[in-house]
Design a protein around this nucleic acid. Structure first.
Lengths: 333, 333
DNA sequence: GCCAGTAGTGTAAACGATTACATTTTATTT
DNA sequence: AAATAAAATGTAATCGTTTACACTACTGGC
């Protein structure tokens, strides 16, 4: 591999000049610039980013830290982040934490050691507290989950509003015995629960059941089975993320109940399967593309100006009403 | 941030000794080792990986280059790769190429510039030829798709066998007019087609239809619609990946046809939705966890010993027979 | 008590770029 | 044509490590 010295020799200039050409400095005579450029071409020279990084104390890498890339929400986010990052010449390091605070701490340290320019992070609730100690060392943009460090950039859904809207939708369609399954790893479940409760209160109703459980298909499945096996089962199930939705759907099917006649089902996040199952699932679609892109842009802004005052961008979810919550027969007339 | 000099000063030794302690060298007196360790602890020192990387000409990063992380197959692979990588202290850089050879070339160059220790790559067919020029510079393990560079490590499914098995399954269940939808971006579609054809030939049948199309939901949808709208439509549709399966499923539903009575459907890759739809989809499940892990291990072995003779690991898919290809009534007796 | 061998440590040169500062060349003014 | 300013380039320090080599201080053998 040729290095900058080889280029300098070939072009008959110093390494400083080559570096200036590389940086697009204007203080280089056009003629020399071309000479350098052609030497670069000739030798097929590519600057060593590690060396550049060490000297300039900067890097063109960012970290993306999520609980599990297999969660369709994060899959989609990750794609958006990468697209936005690569447009700016940045690469993306991916980390899965499994909602485990120790892994979160570990990966944040690793990313710091790798000198990433910044991190896009979806932290557990437990980790939120420790966040500020990292935030002073690396620019961080938090996504999906609110943290109460006021100094941090965030991109969030209006979760309470979304939970409210989804619940109102159920109520308007005639469902009354609403059970809610909420993820317990983040504030997101809690916020969606707030909207859920508020909507119920406004209708002078109480939740049929409320459960805060690990956001996993298996948990959604088991919890729903238990709900359905109760003597007086709910007539609608509200799930706060797509993994719980999948588990609930499976449980309902295994109990040979009909959606929505026996029990309605609503959830969050558009997935491939949400529209394919019978009946298709009513849900709040999050603008994942926009979330990922916005988070990346916010991060770049903070990298460029660390003293900039922190922003919180709140995006709206979109209710997609489908068969799984169709109006109850008695209501539809 | 403290650097190695600070540690050396605090411990009253030279930087060389600190470095030796860090490297776990035995040529350090136990007493000094403890002194250094405690200085590291005290100062909360963490070595700068960029500097280390520059000096040692090594790095603990690998690249993962796939067409689109949102393809459930790659989502799952990526998780497995990261788990395996992080166990060895490696980080993972993620790249999406959209089956675009130019992007493939670009990302491979970027990864090279970033001095990754190696790359796990799922290349397009068009790119395969250019692969060897990169392979001489960076260790590469190819996954999912065969390339004919004999010098390269690969982890593949036995695609022809899988295609064969899936087709035989359809034939045994009484389907005769088989249409096949195959991805056109990689050798994988071609191989699965080989198995498809072979099975048909052994039954003295010809494919009802064979299409090589871009591996996208939309393409699967449109192509299937066209198939179904023909005067003499197929009685079974074979799809070579989960995106095509999803498109085909949607098309069948939109035409209000029943699976499998009107038309059976089979495909590849276990997804969340494959088991949730009605009827659930018969498919060949790939051992994604094993593929990702094996590829990562192969890569580490090659990094450790670049002259090692290349290996190809071929894994078997597993047929999961479900409702979408249930025996035809006339056959089931 | 001397020598060879080894264990433990230090010194200083890399790695490949960027960049502050010094210097040379060119242009502008008088 | 000299003086001055501006533009272009070069020199060398620097980023934070690792590591080849040199050195010192022991150890044990004779």
């Amino acid at each position: 591999m040729p290095d900058i010295k080889d280029v300098a020799n070939a072009a008959g200039v110093s390494t400083a000049t080559v570096s200036r050409v590389l940086a697009g400095s204007t203080r280089v005579k056009e003629e020399t610039r071309l000479r350098v450029l052609s030497a670069i071409e000739q030798l097929n020279y590519r600057p060593n980013l590690v060396a550049r990084s060490l000297r300039s104390q900067k890097s063109a890498r960012i970290g993306l830290v999520v609980s599990d890339i297999r969660n369709p929400f994060f899959t989609s986010i990750s794609r958006a982040v990468e697209d936005a990052a690569y447009e700016q010449g940045y690469s993306v390091l991916l980390c899965n934490t499994d909602e485990n605070p120790e892994k979160e701490e570990l990966y944040l340290k690793v990313l710091h050691d790798e000198s990433v320019a910044g991190v896009i992070f979806s932290p557990t609730q437990q980790f939120s507290a420790r966040l500020s100690s990292f935030e002073s060392q690396i620019p961080i943009v938090v996504i999906d989950r609110a943290v109460n460090a006021s100094s941090i950039d965030m991109v969030l859904l209006d979760n309470a509003a979304a939970g409210y809207e989804l619940t109102v939708h159920l109520l308007q369609n005639g469902y009354r015995k609403l059970a809610g399954l909420f993820g317990n790893a983040s504030t997101t479940g809690r916020e969606r629960n707030r909207g859920f409760r508020q909507a119920l209160e406004e209708h002078q109703l109480r939740p049929w059941s409320e459960q805060f459980i690990p956001p996993r298909i298996q948990q959604g499945y088991e919890t729903t089975l238990a709900l359905l096996d109760q003597p007086d089962r709910p007539d609608a199930i509200f799930t706060s993320n797509s993994l719980l939705t999948a588990g609930a759907f499976q449980a309902i099917r295994d109990r040979r109940l009909k959606v929505p006649d026996d029990v309605a089902l609503v959830g969050f996040d558009e997935t491939t399967w949400g529209a394919l199952v019978e009946p298709p699932i009513t849900l709040i679609a999050q603008p994942t593309e926009e979330i990922g892109r916005t988070a990346t842009e916010l991060l770049f802004q903070r990298i460029a100006d660390p003293s900039r005052s922190p922003r919180t961008v709140i995006l709206k979810g979109k209710l997609i009403a489908r068969g799984s919550s169709a109006p109850r027969p008695s209501f539809s007339a």
